[in-house]
């Protein structure tokens, strides 16, 4: 299966580590995904619809689909929010003929059209269901034995299509299976698909403290050494806000937050620069030391 990659805006900033480690994992697993959608644009995230409405945002998202269709390959997305927007827009294009013609009318203004021929796939979905856990197990050079992981799928990862097609929308398990294929232990983590507060850092910071705090608590209570997530927003809130929340709650978490591709990189024994651990705010080196990870 061949894919065109949609990196998303976070890949250039807050989620840079995700992007770097993704590229390394793609290479290590020999996934046929060798290029970005040419001239891709922002999907709209969770915010644009607030300013212009759903339809207009979906038209903007659809530009990416139209550009990708020219490449003729399904779209692989690593960012959960981007996945939500692209996959949902794609789904509506496939199932709602009125929507399709309206979107194409809008795309037409930019000289584009989209025939809904592609699938939009999330990284986790592709890793588990296409590449397969066997191959991942095979590629694992340094099994992460003894590492206890809270697998934080995040809310948008599993709810994009509003159907449990790819994973349970409430209690996802794919990420757990993936992490276990690396030799680590997935601890029970009932908050796996609960909201971290999303992009309300500036508008309702209390919400972030509260919700992200609950997620950190849950991971800690279940004995996790690290949190693993595919979602840049989840990673941002749990990592960058961790100290602040710890202070507010008078607690100590020391809970490194890794992108799933970073963790895979560790197990695959990839080069340190490919792991992009230098971007992590809560230092992961101590917890990963026994798997040969050095600063």
């Amino acid at each position: 299966m061949a894919y065109t990659f949609y990196p998303g805006c976070a890949s250039e900033a807050t989620g840079k580590a995700s992007f770097i480690s993704f590229e390394a994992v793609v290479k290590a697993l020999d996934i046929d995904c060798h290029g970005e959608i040419p001239d891709w644009n922002c999907c709209g995230a969770t915010l644009v619809a607030n300013a212009i409405g759903d339809f207009a945002q979906q038209a903007i998202a659809a530009r990416n689909l139209a550009l990708a269709e020219k490449e003729g390959k399904d779209i692989l997305v690593a960012c959960s929010s981007c996945y939500l927007n692209l996959a949902w827009t794609n789904e509506k294009m496939k199932t709602d003929p009125d929507f399709k013609s309206q979107i194409n009318e809008a795309l037409g203004a930019g000289g584009l059209s989209y025939n809904a021929s592609l699938q939009v796939r999330h990284l986790i979905d592709v890793l588990v269901n296409e590449i397969g856990l066997d191959k991942i197990r095979e590629r694992t050079i340094k099994p992460l034995e003894g590492l206890k992981v809270a697998c934080y799928s995040g809310c948008q990862t599993v709810r994009a299509l509003r159907r449990p097609d790819f994973d349970d929308v409430e209690y996802p398990v794919m990420l757990d299976r993936l992490v276990e294929a690396l030799g680590a232990t997935a601890v029970p983590f009932p908050m796996a698909a609960r909201c971290c507060g999303g992009s309300q850092q500036f508008t309702n910071p209390e919400l972030i403290y509260d919700l992200t705090g609950k997620i950190l608590d849950c991971a800690a209570e279940n004995g996790a050494d690290v949190i693993v997530t595919p979602c840049p927003m989840c990673a941002l809130n749990t990592d960058a806000f961790q100290q602040k929340i710890a202070k507010l709650k008078n607690k100590e978490y020391n809970m490194p937050v890794l992108f799933v591709t970073q963790l895979m990189g560790v197990a695959f024994d990839l080069k340190p620069k490919d792991l992009a651990l230098q971007y992590n705010i809560v230092s992961p080196y101590q917890k990963l030391a026994k798997y040969g990870v050095k600063k």
């Binding site: 644009n41 212009i52 409405g53 339809f55 207009a56 979906q58 038209a59 903007i60 659809a62 530009r63 309206q102 979107i103 009318e105 809008a106 795309l107 037409g108 203004a109 930019g110 584009l112």
Partner: peptide, 11 residues
């Protein structure tokens, strides 16, 4: 992108 947006907003 702007044209697409404007058309979509109008629609």
């Amino acid at each position: 992108l702007k044209k697409i947006y404007e058309k979509a907003a109008a629609l």
